[in-house]
Structure formats: C-alpha cells, structure tokens
Simulated assay, not measured.
Amino acid sequence: MSASFASALTAAHDAAASQNYPQACLYVVATPIGNLADISLRALHVLQRVDAIACEDTRHTQGLLRSYGLERPGHQLLAVHQHNEAEAAAGIIARLQQGQRIAYVSDAGTPGVSDPGARLCAAVAAAGLRAMPLPGASSITSALSVAGCVPHGQTEGGFVFAGFLPTKNAERQAAVHKLAAEPRCTVLLEAPHRIQDLAKALTVLGPRPVTLAREITKQFEQISTHAAHDVAAWLDADATRSKGEFVVVLHPVAVQQDGGDAERVLRLLLAELPTKTAVKLTAEITGGNRNTLYDRALEIKREADNA
C-alpha cells in the first residue's frame, strides 16, 4: 500500500462506518478513471467490508486494491465482464441470497455506463434483490463539467450519451449524420486508434464546436475545443494529441443560425450526401427554411457543374 493512502483508510472508517450497509446487497462502486486519489471514502470502506468483489478484470482490480492496502485472496475476486455477465450474474445472485454483501467494480469509472454492470443489476433486480450505487468518477460527467456547453436559443438543455460509434466507416458516417440532426449536447467515447477516423467523420458538422477530452485526471490530461471541421487537422498537427482514451463532446447547436452558417453547413453536407438529404439535415441543424435551402442547393450544384 502507498503510505499516502494509510490515512485515507482511517478517514474512510471514521466517515462511513456508522452508515447502514445491508446484507444481501450488490454495491455498485465507482472507481478512479486515472487518479487514485479520486476514490471515495465510502468506496474504500465498502471494499473493505464486502464478502467478495465482482470485477471486470480480476488482475486489474487486485492491483487497484493493492494500492489502497485492500488486497484480497483470489477466491474473493469474481470475474464478471462483457463476455460472461449474464452467466456470472447467477453466481452473484446465489451469494446475495445467502446474505452476502458483494461489490461490483469495472476497470475504471462508474459501472454500467459503457462498461459491464447493467445486465448484472437487471438480474439482481429481477431476483428481488437490492443494488446500491456508490457514486464517483465518470469520464462522461467530468468532460461535460468543463466543456462549457450552453444551450442556444430554443435548443433543449441536457445531453445525449451516444457512447462509441460503429467502427465500420459507412456505419460511422451514417451515425454522424443522425447526430447532426440532434441539437442537444451529445457525448461520445472513442479509443486512440480510432480518434482520427471519428474526427474525419465529424467534419460534416462544420462549425459546430467539439470538445476533445483525453486522459482525464491523468498526468497528460488535455481538454481542447475546436470547430468540427478543424478537429482532424488539430489532431494531425501533433501525434501526442491522439494518445489516450477520449471523451468527445458535441456542443449544442443553435436552432436559428444566420444565413452564412446555413450556407456553410449546406455546402459541407452537399459534398458528402445527396441533395435532399443534405437539405433536410441543414434545415434540422440550422433551423433554416427547407424550400429556401433546397433552391440554394440547386444553385450550388449548378455553380459546381459550370465551374
């Protein structure tokens, strides 16, 4: 155990020991996404107290526990990951029915959000048992908290979580075109080896602001906002900018934009899509009149043919 966490265990006991921790309960525990100090006092206490810990990767979790001085015997770590979650849930439920307290942790962040855990919690609920959340680190809310996303005009507040887009190019392009019609803030996740492909796909969003947050809470954390059509070039300018896990935040769009913005969006979409589709998406993104945009699209097509 790192000496820096010895006092944290004492503080965890002092702060959380007097609270109620029912038996026959699944404790869904958020863990740090990079900075070990982001663990909560209640999480430390529960990880000490439970009978067993179900985890996405037993080796990863054992290393995490070791950092806090909470290393467990191997038989107390239960593998529950995306490939066995449905089957493993039956074993967890059997333990809960015996009155055990079981914690569940994913490799990083809050379980059940683009991580395993949702199927396990659904099975626990279906069995009439309790699941208790222990909130903590989340890359999604961390990125949103500093992105500065402000609704414009009649745009609704809140955000849409889209997670990872498809890996195949055509499917990814189709997904981005659907996102273009969503005026609310939209949050995506992406791996470093695919961030360039995503950036190129987002070019069709034109001037829409996009915040890239990588390596959140880690030593080389970087958070930067650019127009969608500039993101790929920004990544290309420095190879280190494509390293690390990414949260990508598409800012809300104004329901009403000026004619210059509508023109720009229309031209970008016409370069990639059939005329009717480009007009439809431009109208939804900018709030422009569809008939007017269609007439302008035909003019742009004629200009291109005569050039």
Results as ranks from 00 to 15, higher is better:
93 I>E: 13
126 A>K: 15
105 V>C: 13
88 A>V: 02
106 S>V: 08
117 G>S: 05
85 E>F: 04
114 S>C: 15
84 N>A: 09
110 T>L: 08
95 R>W: 03
89 A>D: 09
112 G>M: 01
100 Q>T: 09
88 A>Y: 03
83 H>F: 14
109 G>R: 12
94 A>F: 06
87 E>C: 07
93 I>S: 12
132 M>E: 15
112 G>T: 05
99 G>C: 03
126 A>Y: 00
96 L>W: 11
92 I>P: 00
121 C>D: 00
115 D>M: 13
104 Y>F: 15
92 I>K: 06
100 Q>H: 15
124 V>S: 05
134 L>V: 15
95 R>I: 03
81 H>F: 04
117 G>E: 09
116 P>F: 05
85 E>A: 06
102 I>P: 01
87 E>W: 00
122 A>Y: 01
126 A>P: 00
124 V>G: 01
91 G>Y: 05
82 Q>I: 04
105 V>T: 14
131 A>S: 15
86 A>Q: 13
105 V>G: 04
103 A>V: 05
118 A>L: 12
111 P>F: 08
124 V>L: 09
93 I>V: 15
91 G>C: 11
125 A>M: 06
104 Y>M: 10
124 V>K: 06
104 Y>P: 00
115 D>Q: 12
84 N>V: 06
82 Q>M: 04
87 E>G: 06
129 L>T: 09
79 A>V: 12
119 R>S: 13
86 A>F: 10
107 D>Y: 01
87 E>I: 10
112 G>W: 02
